[in-house]
């Protein structure tokens, strides 16, 4: 009973500030325009319907601008997550099994991006990788031509990998910490080489943290704003940037809200994967 009482305030806040606006947005995207909400009702090209219609979504998916934005968002999300895992796993392994000064330095370094605000980090990336940046200057001294990745798709991926590494490594290495040394030594005694130890023991025992990293990063990248706004091209854009533009500069709140609904559906799939992986982990 007391437990229920304790959990009530957060549930109340959740309903008031998250669930209710989300439902209102969903209704808006289906054509129910709330007259008392000026931010919604003053939009251009509104679809009004008393019974609800999918007209807004039809218009959205018929627009080639939106489909290229969605394709970019999916591409960036998958590539970023894949690269993030490829970069973070070795780092996590090094943090878990590395010995000596170098491992200590690595443990500090991979945490560094966590303490740098994203806006500052993107500025740093622009100064380093951008046109007339440091990298171009360094490569220029040895005569290697360089084409900036900033304001390109690759720039967004670069930003996301940089920003995402600390969380990924922390998550993965804490999972690896949970695997006892005895277990690994026993495997080595049986003659297992490093690859077999990784493939047959570390990876399977550490699969839940890996899935958590992948799903959380996917959701984070999919809905991101700052990194693609700062590092991405003018067009196509990731959905987060496009939503903000539609809501503000284009005065198309209904389209923006419909895009949010579409993003939610995609992220819900990733969320389901996360829920499935954690409950599965608990059972075993």
């Amino acid at each position: 009973m007391l437990g229920l009482l304790l959990v009530l305030p957060p549930i109340f806040v959740l309903i008031l500030l998250v669930l209710y606006p989300a439902l209102e947005a969903l209704r808006f995207s289906l054509g129910f325009v709330p007259a008392d909400n000026p931010a919604y009702a003053s939009g251009l090209d509104l679809v009004n319907s008393d019974t609800g219609s999918l007209e807004v979504f039809k218009k959205l998916f018929a627009s080639s601008f939106f489909s290229s934005n969605l394709a970019l968002t999916l591409r960036v999300s998958f590539v970023s997550v894949a690269l993030l895992v490829l970069v973070s796993y070795p780092l996590a392994l090094f943090a878990r099994f590395g010995r000596g000064r170098l491992a200590g330095v690595a443990r500090v370094l991979y945490l560094l991006p966590m303490f740098v605000p994203v806006v500052i980090a993107t500025y740093a990336l622009i100064t380093f990788f951008g046109d007339n940046g440091w990298l171009e200057a360094i490569l220029g001294t040895v005569g290697i031509p360089y084409h900036s990745v900033i304001r390109q798709e690759a720039g967004i991926v670069l930003g996301h990998v940089w920003v995402g590494v600390p969380f990924a490594v922390l998550m993965l290495s804490s999972g690896l910490d949970g695997i006892s040394n005895e277990c690994l030594e026993a495997a080595r005694d049986q003659g297992a080489n490093a690859w077999v130890v990784f493939w047959r023991i570390l990876l399977p025992l550490n699969i839940v943290p890996l899935l958590i990293v992948m799903t959380f990063s996917f959701i984070g990248v999919f809905g991101s704003y700052t990194v693609p706004y700062m590092l991405g091209p003018s067009a196509p854009q990731m959905l987060g940037v496009s939503m903000a533009l539609n809501f503000g500069a284009f005065r198309q709140p209904q389209q923006a809200v419909a895009m949010a609904v579409v993003s939610f559906v995609f992220c819900a799939f990733a969320g389901a994967l996360y829920v499935w992986s954690t409950t599965r982990g608990r059972k075993s």
């Binding site: 251009l44 627009s63 601008f65 290229s68 500069a249 284009f250 005065r251």
Partner: peptide, 24 residues
Amino acid sequence: SSKFGADMNRLWYEKIAGTPQPQR
């Protein structure tokens, strides 16, 4: 006007920036 301005922004992104960027 602000409404025409909003449409101008949208159409600029769709028609100008939204067309494939020329590759160098």
